[in-house]
Every structure is written in structure tokens, then in C-alpha cells.
Design a protein around this nucleic acid. Structure first.
Lengths: 206, 206
DNA sequence: CGCCTATCGATATTTTTTTATCGATTCTAA
DNA sequence: TTAGAATCGATAAAAAAATATCGATAGGCG
């Protein structure tokens, strides 16, 4: 199927992938009903989501688990632009550099950048840390398209501007501020405090 | 106005709040048009969102900035259940313990829990770290309703089960696994790797 | 083999969210 | 003091997402 896949669907695909991988290998097939039950989703929704990336299951037996995993991985991971850099190697930046779940999606954080001299040349999570001044060269030389911003809020927008100017096309911003970028660039503002506030709000509404 | 506020709207409220706070104090009023322009949203959407929590602005002049901030803060922060604990004091847990943006929403992370003895009694970000065995008592004694899970994936579900059993009502899960909880509990699964994968996907679709 | 059940995929319906339109209100200024 | 522009709030329309319905098909079983 080749219609446009909605963002809501794309967001659920990694969840399916993860769940399928957690299954016992001895289970060759799985039904949408079962997936829906395990993940607390509607079974029709699961079928629709899977229909958008899979070539289909069989009535009564469901989908082949390994085939589905392949299809999900190839959809999510088939991506040339899969390297990212981190700007701002504080606690959070370090946590992300050491986080080992990215590879599952064919993604890799390849380097960190900071302004603090004492970090230059260090290795964190096996990734080198460089002087922030070198970002431009590094990004251009290596054709990097994605960047993660974990600098203090007051530097977030200027960092984003700089990244955009050197050719970054996707930004994941963890600074507690909302950055604005040109339409040609994809940005996800991840405000942790705001997320917790929303959760707290949901809790209260119950 | 007292109609149910949609989750999409609630998610945008912290963004408005943050933006308003970033404004020059000398600006007493602001229009939906201006907010929409700065944040890249539709101006009607901004008006509708604000209408749900504010008692209104005036034509031609817009909204009063300080009043709007108050209204947003009181909506987002007026919450008794505003203390959270963190389970799993690794890099990410530490980063969150030191993160200072939560107070803005009237939220506080009050303690961390881990299984590693060498952490017991330590202070991180001014917050005490305890033995995970003490969670139950702590949560009950202090009436904590929210918990953040930053343990390795393989312990995430069991940690969640335990938290639910001691009375936690909202869980923010950072382990790269999808946890399932009873309907009475609010959960947000925050899979960092999956988020980056989605961003990467969006980038590719362009 | 023929019936029953689980499940798929497609289409239709409902609900939710976003966007557009328009009359009413308030300020500015001639 | 009246014309004009900016902006609000409400209602309507459109778009997107979630959910329900239903015929078709594959396997199990008498």
C-alpha cells in the first residue's frame, strides 16, 4: 500500500515493533486482536496501521511475526539519513550518548559537542566529544542531517539557528524552550517539564 | 468556560505559558495573532485554546499577558498531586533529578530510588536517594501519586506493577519498553529511541 | 465435505481536531 | 464623533483520526 501514512500511525509503529520482538520465538503467528489486547489499542486500529506497511496477514491465523518485524524494521530503519549529533553534553546529553536503544532503529548518535574545554577529546558511550566550534565542519564533512539539542534554554534558539545554517534538517530539542525553525526543517520540541505537567493534569482529570 | 479540554489543547498550554513568560515585561498585552506567529500555530487554534482556560481578551488589544500567565499557571499547576519519585537512578534518572524546569509547573521530584547500595543516602540535585525496597513506605507515607521509571527495560514492567500496587496513579516510563497498567492509572510511555526514529522518518518523508 | 469460528481487509460511520468565516467590539485617529 | 482597522468569540465547514460494520477467506472439526 502506498498512501500517505499518518503521523499518528508512524508513532505507533515502533510500539508494535518492540512488542513483536518481545514475543517468544516459538510463536510464528499473531493476530491483530492479540496485539491490540497486549498494547491496549483498538484491534481495527492495529489492522489499519499494519495494513499501511505490511503485505498482509491471513484470516484465522493472523500475521507472520518475523515477516512483520522485517517489514516494520525496513520501514522504520530504511533510511540513509540515520546519524545524529548532540549539542550540549550535560547530564541529559550524556544520558543520550550512552543510551543504547537507538541502534534498534538503525540510528546512531555519532558525536557530541559542547563549549566546555574539559570535555574535548573525551569519549562518552564510545562517542567523541568535540568543541562546539567544530560543528559546522563536522556536519558538512559527514553529511549529518539530524541534531539533538541539550543545551541550556538560553542557548537553544541560537544553537538551532546555527544548526539550520550548516544544513541540519531535523532537530530534537530537549531544552525547556520552544524553538522555531524554517518550514524546511523538522523539529520536535521535547519539553520534559511540560510533559510531566500534562501527565499530572491527566491524573487530576480522573 | 467549563467544557472538557482536549488533550491536544492541554499539550499546547505549557507552550503558550513558556512563550508568554519569555516576553518583555514591558509588553502588557498580546494578541492571538502574535502568539500564533511566534509559535507557528494557527491563530484560531490559539484563540480556541486560550478560550478554554481564560476569561477572555479584548478586541484590538488582545489578552493581558500577566493575567493569561496566571490563568495558565493556575490551570496547569493547581494540583495537589504534584510530587513525583524516580525509580532508577542511572544517567537519565540523574539528569531528571537535576533538571530544574519542573518547578515552573508546580511539580517536584522529591526522591530517587535504586537497587545499588553505593547510591543510598546520596543527594542528587538536592534530592535524596533511597533503597528501592523503601518505595512502598515512602509513597504511602508521603501520599505520592506520580512516578518516573528509568530502570533497565527488563525491570520496567515489574517496577510498574509494584508502583501501581502501592498506590501510584500516574507513571512516566522512560524504559525502552511499553508498559501496561490498569485503566485506573495514567501512563505515558516515552521511548526515546522510538521518538528519534519517528523524527528521522518525518525527515525522510520530506 | 460442509459448517463454524477467528480473523482479515474494505467501507462506512462517528468522533475529534483543525481551519475558515463572519458579525461584534474596541481602540485610533481624522 | 464617525470611519477604519485589529482582534475577539462563536459558529460552520473541512480534515483527520478512531471506531464500527460486514462480507470474504482460511483453518479446525464433526
Amino acid at each position: 500500500m502506498k498512501t500517505e501514512i499518518s503521523l499518528s500511525t508512524i508513532r505507533r509503529l515502533p510500539i508494535y515493533l518492540h512488542y513483536l520482538k518481545s514475543l517468544d520465538v516459538s510463536q510464528p503467528n499473531i493476530s491483530a486482536t492479540q496485539i491490540a489486547g497486549a498494547l491496549n489499542l483498538g484491534e481495527v486500529q492495529v489492522r489499519k496501521d499494519l495494513a499501511s506497511i505490511s503485505c498482509g496477514g491471513k484470516p484465522k491465523v493472523g500475521y507472520e511475526v518475523h515477516k512483520l518485524i522485517n517489514e516494520l524494521e525496513s520501514y522504520l530503519g530504511a533510511n540513509d539519513e540515520n546519524s545524529a549529533v548532540i549539542v550540549g553534553v550535560g547530564r541529559l546529553g550524556q544520558a543520550l550518548l550512552e543510551y543504547d536503544g537507538f541502534a534498534q532503529f538503525g540510528l546512531e548518535i555519532v558525536a557530541g559537542f559542547d563549549v566546555r574545554e574539559e570535555l574535548f577529546g573525551k569519549n562518552i558511550g564510545g562517542k567523541p566529544i568535540f568543541d562546539e566550534k567544530q560543528i559546522s565542519g563536522y556536519v558538512k564533512d559527514n553529511g549529518i542531517a539530524m541534531a539533538i539539542i541539550t543545551v541550556p534554554a538560553s542557548f537553544a534558539q541560537s544553537t538551532a539557528d546555527k544548526l539550520v545554517s550548516v544544513g541540519i534538517k531535523a532537530i530534537w530539542n530537549f531544552s525547556p524552550t520552544h524553538i522555531v525553525v524554517p518550514d524546511t526543517v523538522v523539529v520536535k520540541n521535547e519539553n520534559l517539564a511540560a510533559s510531566l505537567a500534562v501527565l499530572s493534569k491527566q491524573l487530576k482529570e480522573k
